[in-house]
Computed example of a mutant assay.
Amino acid sequence: MPEHLPFRTLGAAIAAATLILATGGARAEDAGRQEYMYNCSACHGESARGDGPVARYLNVSTPDLTALARKNDGVFPLLHVIQVIDGRSGVGPHGTPMPVWGERFMKDGVEDAGPYAAEVIVRGRILSLAEYLESIQKQE
Score class of each variant (00 low, 15 high):
77 P>N: 09
73 D>Q: 05
64 D>I: 13
73 D>S: 09
77 P>L: 11
67 A>Q: 15
60 V>C: 02
55 A>T: 06
45 G>M: 06
62 T>S: 12
54 V>D: 11
80 H>P: 00
74 G>I: 11
82 I>L: 13
55 A>L: 08
81 V>W: 03
75 V>F: 10
74 G>Q: 05
75 V>S: 04
39 N>Q: 02
53 P>A: 13
68 L>K: 02
48 A>E: 06
72 N>T: 14
81 V>D: 01
69 A>I: 11
56 R>T: 10
64 D>S: 13
79 L>R: 14
40 C>T: 01
81 V>P: 00
75 V>N: 07
74 G>F: 13
39 N>L: 01
73 D>E: 07
46 E>I: 04
60 V>P: 00
71 K>R: 14
42 A>S: 12
66 T>L: 11
63 P>Y: 13
77 P>E: 09
71 K>T: 11
59 N>V: 05
51 D>W: 09
82 I>V: 15
61 S>G: 04
83 Q>F: 12
57 Y>D: 10
43 C>K: 02
47 S>D: 15
43 C>G: 04
41 S>E: 03
66 T>W: 08
80 H>T: 09
55 A>E: 07
68 L>P: 00
51 D>E: 14
74 G>D: 05
66 T>V: 13
71 K>Q: 14
58 L>H: 04
70 R>I: 03
55 A>K: 03
74 G>Y: 12
45 G>N: 08
73 D>F: 03
51 D>A: 03
41 S>Q: 03
79 L>Q: 15
69 A>C: 09
73 D>L: 02
